[in-house]
Each structure stands twice: as structure tokens, then as C-alpha cells.
Write a protein that binds this DNA or RNA. Structure first.
Lengths: 396, 396
DNA sequence: CATGTTAGTTCAATGCGTGAACGAAACGGC
DNA sequence: GCCGTTTCGTTCACGCATTGAACTAACATG
């Protein structure tokens, strides 16, 4: 029973302004007249609001179109260079910092390689901060033009606590305060979330999930996770760790999983589990091409994998009744590209008719590199929801 | 990406009024002064708003308390007899109609037995309509005082479509328009949902789920279902059929399930599956006492059941990260009363540490008879959210 | 150039929450 | 019994929101 907040007349403006901004952001250039229909607001309100947004330079004019026999309509659009966003992908082997304009066009990027022994959190924070300076310089953008920094990290990001604490076993991070470290080095607003979640967010906003209100985005790499979207909102759970699909049990006394338990879905369909089951030596370094060979050769292991994946997806459909399921992650895309039809068949056999018919199962569009973009999306979301109070910030 | 609606100043009032009503409804009698703190609204707003609500007789005074050395505070509360709610439970063997006051105190009730051959939808509708008249007469309440009728039915209730259509295989209902039939017989607003969902709603509002923002309420009877609550809202999915937990697969080539598939959770922990596994003949009529005997004797089947149930719950925890899990339904309560500790152990072994620690697993409080109350809660929810536009309706 | 059509703006009206001033109802001390 | 103090509650002018109606702007057509 989420308590609604107290509202005042100003919140009305904030909400309507956000709605208008979203319509224009996703609905392409539109005239003021069209916006009245799309938003439900009166022409008067649209007029004053677009006036404000134009003087703030958040919107810009985008040509005009004839309207047979009358005054031509002036098209409005979001000004892509009004401000910029920074997205960061902290992964096992690298830290990547990317600079985007408001339309998510990449303006600059820098990569830092992490040696396995160097997952020291302070080093990572220094890399990120240095990367911010580099992309700003490369993109010829000042910090004052940046709305914020989104960071996708591995592991669980505890929110709500005084500071976002990160727990990532494989990194040796146990309650690491990345947010605090960032704030010590920059005055830009910082948003942190799990990398799989930010990737899901990217697919939802800019990939195959566009427009879906109820969706599940599953990410299959060496690990397996999911982003659940209900009523247009990502389901985070009570401590922001919802979506651990990989460790749901699909077989009561199944294969041991690296999490210590048995029968986890990840032990079957995760890249590592899959390669292991196919008899590929663990030392193999180039997992993607090894996986490609396994999938191309086919055989019972591959068939089994399809069955496990399809059954796992069927469980999601029964439980959550999404309108769309996206399969993403590098391994997920490789499996999906070759076996999507078979997967659909298995899903159909293992889910109830009514929810199955309501779902479409598709592949992700953005590829495995969307973590940083999704992280930047966290900043964008904040901007679209609350562009009024959120101000551009001073340089660090 | 749920589109927010256009808002005007009046929506501000509606929202704040709803918040105030909720605080008073769940937060017991309060003085105006306390309400300023609890709602965040100014004293001025509280004053005018309570004034309105008092003249509308939605609120009433509830005595006063001294305040050392100053004017005593006048306590306000929701007037329980301002209006009434009707809840209906349509089950396999009976139709039950109950009349509640605003505080969910039962004022009258009537039961109709359904013979297995008489699940004709028109008959059911006639029974409900007759039942409404009976409880109104018994409770000495006029239809004009009733806010609406909530109905809990078996099967899937498709919403959004022109009319709520009901699909219930066991009843032979395939797209049955109960809502339309009701409207033909009464002018009261009608709300229809799956009975397991309404029961979950009842537990969430008035049972062991009070105050939880992220919860899963699992219901185990002969069938198995779940209500998922995220951010205080029930997750319905795209066609209102989310929560089919019973038919998620927990064993790849497991027991056949009555749904036609194999390895469904319901085939193991549903009352029917459990009794069958324990070797109890299917013809047994008194399932509850048979189940009691099986559970009291114990043995490997019971242990297995605990393992399956615990593993299923662990999957929910990993996937959804709830703060609370409620076990309900007549069979669920019987198992839970005897084996809750063992269940907790199994859950701990099969879920990730962090989300496990964030969850408490408890039994439902309301017993298996809460379907009608939960259905009435649908009406109450509407009232609390929008008491302003929702008017009392003329008699049928 | 007059007329019609469509697009966009301005303005008075209405509604809402708020802070500040005000009124109400108790107590304690004398 | 009176008065100051304390706490609770109400009233009112103000700022800010949307809106419909009246108005202006910019085009096409004849």
C-alpha cells in the first residue's frame, strides 16, 4: 500500500510537463495543435508550457508543415543538445564511460581495461572520474551541460540505505559505497543500478521493448538475470534485488550451480553451464565462439537448453502475464537467433493458453553493449519526470 | 511505460482527499492536528477538507482527548455506517453474498448451494441478485447506501475488454459476461476479479499483509495461485491473469498435472496432488480431514511437499524480492501450521542470502473464507481512491 | 483584396494548498 | 473569578495551476 505523497498545484504542472516532454521525446516532432490531442491538455496550457520550454531551450522548433488552407503548424521537438548524459558500464574486464546527447546519440567514449586483480573500488571510482573528464573533453561539453551520471555495476545495488551499497561477490565487493566515492569526486548527480537492469532499461526504452507496459527482459550471458516491468515500471522489490531469475530452481535435484545450490536455471542456460554441459573445457577463453560452435553443431545438449529456456520463460508468462518477452545478453542472443521458433514451441507447451496468447517473444535489439546506455537512461528518466526541479549542475 | 494522465487542480484535491481518508481509515481516530503531520498537508487544508467530509457524513467525531494545558483535540474517524459494501464469493459449491459496513464488519450474509450441474451463468447471476436483496433486507440497508458489489469468481477474469469476461474451465465458462448480466439486474457498480486475487487483496489490506509494499500471497487449496504485490499495487499483467504460480514448472519431467503439462508446482503441493501422492483415494470427499491425517502422520511425502513448497517460495523470493510472503488457502494453512519452520529452512537453502534476509514468511490470518471480504475490498479501494466523484447510487 | 480555415495566444474565471492572522477552548496561578 | 499561556482549529489573501472564450496570426482560394 504505497502511500501517495501530498500534492500541491505545482505538482500538477510538473506532471503535465513531464507528460508533454515524454510525448515529444518518443512521439517525434509535433505541432502544438497535435499535442493538445496527444496529451489531453487544452490549447492554452500547451501554449504556455511550450513557451516556457522553448525559452529554457529544452524544446526547439523543427520546421513547419502546411495545413490545407490555414496557418501552417510549427513542429516542436526536444532539443538534443540542450543537455548531455553520461553512462558508465563497470564490467569484469573493463570500465567504459560514454557521453550521450539527450537523444542518446553517442558523442564520445573511453574504455579502461581492468586487470582481474584490480577490482579495487577506489581504482574503479578513479577510472570513472577520469573517464568523465575525458569524454567531456572529447565531446567538447562542459560539466555544467551534463544532467548526471548513470552507472551500471555487477551484483546487487542496495538502495534506500544512506548510500547505495554494492554487493558483488565476483568483484570481492561487499557493501561498497561507490556513490559516496563518486560524490567526493564530482558534483554531478549519480545514479547507480545493476548492469543487467540498466541493459533491460535500455531495451525497454530504446530497443525491442518500446511501448510495452508489461514486459520481462531476460539477459543471458555467463550469468542469467531478468528485468520485470509491470505497469510501465521496473519491479525492484523491497531491497532492489528483484530479477534474480538465474537462480530460480527448475529441477529439484539438478546440476550444482556456482551459487552453491542445485538445479538453478543458470546452471543450464547460462553460458558457463551450457559450455560445461557440452563438454567444452572451462579454460576456454573465447566463450562466444565456443558457444557458437556448440550451437551450430547442435545435439541433445542444445535441445535440452532450448527446453530449459522455454520452460523458464513459460514460468515467467504464467506468473507475470507480460505482453512481451525480450531475450537479450550475448548468449541469449546467440541461442535466440538460432532457435527462437523452437523456444516458442516449448513455451507454448508449458504455459497456460490465455497468457501465452497474450505474449510475444522477441530478441533484444540493442546487443550486449547497452549497459552504459541504459545507465544513462536512469538520468534521462529523472529528467523527463522532473525537468523542472532538476537543474543543470555546476562543474565539479 | 505507463502514460500518466493529464492532471488538473481538481486531481490534487482528489488525491489528497484519498490520502487523508486512507490515513484515517487505517490509522485509527486522529485529531486534525495529528493529521497535518501524518499527511504533510497544512492545517488549513486539513481544516477545510475535514469540514467537507464531516458535512458529507463520511467522517464523524470520535470524542476528544486532553492536551496538557491547551484546547483538547477532537478525534475524527471514518463513519462506518456512511455507506455499505457487498462482497460475493462464487465457488464450486456455493454462492455467498455478504454485506459489510465501511469498516468491513459483516452485517448480513446469505449462502446458496450450487449443485455441480448448475453452474449455468444466468442462474449464478440470479442467485447473486437475489442475495443482494436478501442481505439488504436483513441488514436494513437500502441499495442507495451501497457503494458497490465486488464479486470473486474462479478462473481468469479478462479485463479491459468491453466487459469483464470470465474463463473458468471447471465451470464450463468460456468468456462468460457476468458483468453485463449483473448490470441488467442492478444499477450498483460491479467489480469482478478472480477469487484467489480477492482473497489476496483481503490479506493484504486486513490480514497478515497489512502495510507491506512488496508481498506475495500464495494460496494453496486444491489449486495453487498467488497474488503479487509490487509497490503497493497488485500486479495484474497485461490480461489480468498474472499469478498462475501453480502451473510454473519446478521439475522438468515431473508428475503430470491436470492442466495437461508436467512438473507443475500444483501437482505436488496442491491438495489434490498431495493426497494423490500420499495414496489417498481420489474419491475421498472430505479433503481437509484426509489432508490433516496425512500431514499428522508425516513421512517422505510430507517432507517432499515441504521441499517443493519451500523451493517454490524461494523462486518467488529470488525473482521478486518481496518483504513478506503470506501462505494462505485451506491446504496452505494446514501445511504451514505444522511445518512453517521447516519451510523457512528450505527457502533459506534455495534463495540468495540478500533477498532471503529481506523477507519474512508468515501464515495468512483471515482463513479461507475471505473471498467475499476481498471482493468487497475492491469497492472500498475505489471509494478511498476517489470518494469525490464516486457517488452513492440509486436503488436498482 | 476579401473570405475562409486552421494554428496559436491571451485573459478572466475557477479551484487548490499555504502561511499568517485570528478565534476557540482548555489549564494554572492568583 | 480573572488572566496569561498553551494548544487546537479556522479564515482569508495570495500564488499558481488549467480552462473556455475571445482574439490574433498565417496561410489558401477566388
Amino acid at each position: 500500500m504505497a502511500r501517495p505523497e501530498r500534492k500541491t498545484v505545482r505538482d500538477v504542472r510538473k506532471g503535465n510537463r513531464g507528460m508533454l516532454l515524454r510525448t515529444l521525446y518518443f512521439g517525434g516532432p509535433r505541432s502544438r495543435h497535435e499535442l493538445t490531442g496527444l496529451t489531453g491538455l487544452s490549447a492554452a496550457t500547451i501554449s504556455t508550457m511550450t513557451g516556457d520550454l522553448l525559452t529554457e531551450k529544452i524544446l526547439m522548433e523543427a520546421g513547419q508543415v502546411d495545413s490545407d488552407g490555414g496557418r501552417p503548424r510549427v513542429l516542436l521537438r526536444v532539443n538534443p543538445v540542450y543537455a548531455y548524459l553520461i553512462g558508465v558500464d563497470v564490467a569484469e574486464t573493463h570500465v567504459r564511460v560514454e557521453l550521450f546527447d539527450l537523444e542518446m546519440t553517442e558523442k564520445a567514449r573511453v574504455d579502461y581495461t581492468l586487470r582481474p586483480s584490480h577490482h579495487d573500488i577506489e581504482l574503479v571510482a578513479r577510472r570513472i572520474l577520469a573517464g568523465i573528464d575525458v569524454v567531456l573533453a572529447d565531446g567538447q561539453v562542459t560539466a555544467a551541460q551534463v544532467l548526471g551520471v548513470g552507472i551500471g555495476v555487477p551484483g546487487i545495488v542496495e538502495r534506500g540505505v544512506p548510500d547505495a551499497l554494492i554487493h558483488a561477490k565476483t568483484f570481492g565487493w561487499d557493501g561498497v559505497p561507490l556513490g559516496a566515492l563518486m560524490r567526493a569526486g564530482t558534483s554531478l548527480p549519480v545514479f547507480i543500478d545493476n548492469g543487467a537492469k540498466t541493459m533491460g532499461q535500455a531495451e525497454l526504452w530504446f530497443g525491442a521493448g518500446r511501448g510495452a507496459d508489461h514486459a520481462v527482459i531476460v539477459l543471458i550471458g555467463s550469468g542469467v538475470g531478468a528485468t520485470v516491468v509491470a505497469d510501465g515500471q521496473a519491479v525492484r522489490g523491497t531491497s532492489n534485488s528483484a530479477g534474480e531469475w538465474g537462480h530460480t530452481k527448475i529441477e529439484m535435484n539438478g546440476r550444482p550451480c556456482r551459487c552453491g545450490s542445485r538445479g538453478c536455471l543458470e546452471a543450464y542456460i547460462g553460458a558457463e553451464g551450457l559450455l560445461d554441459r557440452a563438454g567444452v573445457p572451462v579454460q576456454t577463453t573465447d566463450w562466444p565462439s565456443a558457444l557458437g560452435r556448440v550451437l551450430d553443431v547442435g545435439g541433445p545438449v542444445v535441445d535440452e537448453t532450448v527446453t530449459y529456456l522455454g520452460t523458464g520463460l513459460a514460468n515467467l508468462i504464467n506468473m507475470l502475464n507480460p505482453e512481451r518477452i525480450l531475450i537479450g545478453g550475448w548468449a541469449g542472443l546467440m541461442i535466440g537467433e538460432r532457435h527462437l521458433d523452437q523456444i516458442r514451441v516449448v513455451v507454448g507447451e508449458n504455459s497456460l493458453t490465455q497468457p501465452y496468447n497474450a505474449t510475444s517473444i522477441v530478441l533484444g535489439e540493442l546487443g550486449p553493449d547497452a549497459v552504459a546506455m541504459g545507465a544513462a537512461t536512469l538520468v534521462l528518466e529523472e529528467f523527463l519526470d522532473a525537468s523542472a526541479p532538476l537543474r543543470l549542475h555546476a562543474a565539479s
